[in-house]
């Protein structure tokens, strides 16, 4: 019984109904949750908002402020994209914190696909808007000619590593957080199983720790969604203003 805790098991992708896997279910749930919040929250269009409308407006103004600060008012072209990314990642992260649920964002392929979407948008919009002028992104102003090749190489590498860092940051945070949670929660049952009554008493310690980590994971869930959206804004800003 002591081995009943397999911290990796929670990341297993299993089909639930035909082609619908547990991952797909939670993606659908996240989209349904976001849509419900936004659509129900904006249904009454009250001058003085109720709870749900406040929440919807809060998310709207939060993301809008984020774009305004990082990419200026021209960045509002990407408002739907950044808003969708933020809400999707946030809801996937939060839904994953429900015990027994599945965390969509703990899979590198999902986070990498989202990051790639961002980078491809940057590249596509950048070239469409500025043509070859978009390549000025890799040539900073005021750099002496003899080290320019080196600087350009560094800029290109840093640009190419963006989707990797963007996706790995989110993936690793969610993965590590859930493994930690599972391991500490597992200590509770392992102790009681191995030591009986004494173990049950000792199990209070990892239980408290689990509660603390759960609180921390709620923070991480929000923070990683925020960081993902914020970096998206900053990368999109490059597409809007490639000349630094």
């Amino acid at each position: 019984m002591a081995g009943a805790i397999d911290p990796i098991h929670q990341f297993q992708i299993t089909p639930l109904l035909g082609p619908v896997t547990n991952s797909a279910t939670f993606m659908i749930l996240a989209v349904a949750g976001v849509s419900a919040l936004l659509l129900l929250g904006s249904r009454e269009r009250a001058l003085v908002p109720g709870r749900l409308q406040s929440l919807a407006e809060l998310s709207y103004e939060f993301v809008r402020g984020m774009i305004h600060q990082t990419a200026g008012k021209h960045g509002m072209v990407f408002f739907p994209l950044v808003f969708s990314l933020f809400m999707f990642v946030l809801f996937c992260n939060l839904l994953g914190l429900i015990p027994g649920s599945f965390t969509v964002t703990s899979h590198i392929i999902v986070t990498f696909a989202l990051a790639l979407l961002v980078i491809l948008t940057v590249i596509g919009y950048g070239f469409a808007k500025h043509g070859l002028g978009f390549l000025k992104l890799f040539v900073p102003h005021g750099v002496p000619g003899y080290i320019l090749p080196l600087v350009v190489a560094i800029e290109v590498i840093s640009f190419l590593s963006r989707p990797i860092s963007l996706s790995v940051r989110l993936f690793a945070n969610m993965l590590a957080g859930h493994i930690t949670l599972k391991v500490f929660a597992g200590f509770v049952t392992m102790l009681s199983a191995a030591l009986g009554g004494v173990g049950l008493a000792l199990g209070v310690l990892p239980l408290l720790l689990t509660i603390g980590i759960t609180a921390l994971e709620f923070l991480v869930a929000f923070l990683q969604a925020y960081v993902f959206a914020l970096l998206t804004c900053m990368y999109l800003n490059d597409a809007l203003h490639p000349g630094h």
């Binding site: 991952s23 993606m27 989209v31 659509l39 709207y60 739907p80 808003f83 969708s84």
Partner: peptide
């Protein structure tokens, strides 16, 4: 996962861009 992500995120993007944000902006 990629297929489901494309379906769900695409649907979310559509809902956000076409319905939710215009309504919220209106409010």
């Amino acid at each position: 996962q990629l297929i489901w992500l494309a379906i769900t995120f695409g649907a979310l993007y559509f809902i956000v861009a076409k319905i939710a944000l215009p309504r919220l902006a209106n409010i």
